[in-house]
Write a protein that binds this DNA or RNA. Structure first.
Lengths: 196, 196
DNA sequence: CGTCTATTTGAATGTACTCAAAAGCGGTGG
DNA sequence: CCACCGCTTTTGAGTACATTCAAATAGACG
């Protein structure tokens, strides 16, 4: 169960972890299961924990005045679930996070993370790299959102994270792309008939 | 000239800088002036330097196949100009960056930054904080892009960075919001008449 | 098999875009 | 100081694309 986390850390940091260090990590991360549809975070609450996904999938979304859901993040194995802003600033979150499938998480507080950062070089490096990549991914997505059409954004998602397309229902993919399910359905239809 | 950088570092890191440390910083950052319209970075080049803006303003944008410009970032005093992805990964950039007004920058390489990080705690902390805030700002902007209308996005920008509205021509603001100048003009007209 | 949810399709509406032209504004040179 | 030029902003008309609402179809699960 913790192996995937260990692999993740060494891979991202390019630094090996000693067994003593790994003990510290084990202490900091607590496993927790979420059943399908169960909430990990509700709007208005502070995101006390961030969770490493060992198995399963989650979505992060806001709900507007009209009751429409807007998915800002979809995550599967080896990703982190949690509202970054709320977790870091300890402010109430604008988002909900819930399990799309039955999901196993390893939970950790920001306090523990900061402590680990100072004790385990690999963890410190991992977070630096994660922040860097997160920033880059964010900028790419923003660029796509500004300058690409809905169809192009769908194709980009297909290239960048093909796993997400297979893992989540179309309604959620559409929401993630910022379009309605109907529009996505029509885009896909077009793409298919255009191939022939 | 370097004072604004010094203030920026202490403010972001909440750590004071000794005069010896400041000497190291002076060595790493080289001042450079850009005249209005002069390029700081051209598409295809690697972004070797990132620049702290002492005075002036810059824009970062891509140009698509149809020749349309898409502005992804607008920056003014006390912001950093540079393509994050290219700067960090040393890959060719997809963006152009040029001066909107006559601009004074303090340039630094990624190498120097990494070195400073290990020598000057305040710099290390500053970058952590910058990455955090950058991530948060990015997520907010992405959320706005997915779930808000053009008008709402304009109002949000007005709240978040009022300085940008006064500093850049409407055409650029429109591009930054992902809409055409005509649409922005109409939105503003609507907002004004609605106030009466 | 029946129920519940997701996806597809259709028709009408709305929002933003394109293209074209007019108006406004700022700076420069006579 | 004014007239002119270039650039930005505004306005208008027609078009394209995505949305809404409603209904039909298809899948998934008990």
């Amino acid at each position: 169960m913790y192996n995937s986390l260990r692999n993740y850390i060494t891979e991202y940091s390019s630094i090996d972890i000693t067994d003593e260090e790994f003990t510290l990590i084990l202490d900091a991360f607590k496993p927790k299961r979420f059943r399908k549809r169960q909430y990990f975070l509700q709007e208005g609450d502070v995101c006390k924990y961030t969770g490493f996904i060992v198995k399963g999938s989650m979505r992060q979304y806001s709900v507007d005045q009209s009751g429409n859901e807007h998915i800002v993040k979809l995550c599967i194995e080896n990703w982190w679930a949690g509202d970054y802003e709320s977790f870091v600033m300890l402010t109430p979150s604008k988002y909900n996070i819930d399990a799309v499938e039955d999901t196993e998480l390893l939970l950790v507080t920001n306090e523990s993370i900061q402590e680990l950062r100072s004790l385990v070089p690999a963890v410190n490096r991992m977070i630096q790299v994660m922040d860097q990549r997160g920033m880059i991914a964010g900028q790419r997505r923003m660029h796509a959102s500004i300058s690409l059409s809905a169809e192009e954004r769908y194709l980009e998602l297909e290239n960048t994270y093909p796993a997400l397309l297979q893992r989540f229902p179309q309604t959620m993919i559409a929401s993630y792309l910022g379009i309605t399910p109907e529009t996505l359905s029509r885009i896909r239809k077009q793409l298919i008939t255009r191939l022939k």
